[in-house]
Design a protein around this nucleic acid. Sequence first.
DNA 1: GTCCCGATTG
DNA 2: CAATCAGGAC
Length: 290
Amino acid sequence: MQPCPVGSPSTAVVNRWYRAHARDLPWRSTTPWGVLVSEFMLQQTPVPRVIPYWTTWMDCWPTPAGLAHATPAAVIRAWGTLGYPRRATRLHEAARTISNAYGGEVPDTYENLIALPGVGDYTANAVLAFAFHKRTTVLDVNVRRVISRAWRGEQHPPAHLTTIERALADSLVPTTPHAASTWAAASMELGAVLCTTTNPQCTACPLTDTCAWNTAGQPKSTHTTRRQPTYTGSDRQERGRILALLRAHDTLTAAALEKDATNPEQHIRARDSLLADGLIATTGRHLHLP
DNA sequence: GTCCCGATTG
DNA sequence: CAATCAGGAC
């Protein structure tokens, strides 16, 4: 017997679902600067962890010019334990560029945005869509997963963005800028809230009857997912330990910093990399935030 | 391709 | 324990 004709997944359906179910996130009603700050913080960091940091940050530095005048030490301190602290120094640099080269206004073109430090293809397009409501293709891990499942019938998107995937994503973007920017937020929201990596809530999904993957019986992806190296015992962990100490104490001797390190060689490697990244600085035998 | 952070969840 | 997370730079 013939399967039920259920139709194709529709971006309009996702947009309708979004208008009814969107989370009330603070960066959804803010300035372009607030959007840019949120996108930096949200790179590889879950929404619930970002919210309090974003709120404090925007109270402190409500404009790019404000952040541009802050010291690196203050910026690194304010980043706290959000992780990937180079994002903080890149955001600081971006603020100075915006302040000096663009009159303090976040640029609204892809070329100018992607030239900012810490801004890649995703972040540039996200700012264009969320801050300026432009028609662009916003492809983060959530959107890729939604398209992969609903339109391609695959459980997981490929490890790296393919030409096919990019073309499909481009073809799905609604025509009007208004609908397109809503789709950018809506597809991301669907992937973050319902169409999650593990245990997706397909029964609550507006695409449940049209999703190619769900209607096919949720087949497992064949390709293997790349696993990341373990954090415990890594250089990254040692870098985090050093930064935490220097946030707590204004300045420490090199010997004091090395004292409780797990591995002396690793400690030196981590310390030198932090120096090279401009996240710490030296004065004589002392180390401190820059 | 590898490295970069740390809280949270299974 | 391991995997995940609104990526980017090298």
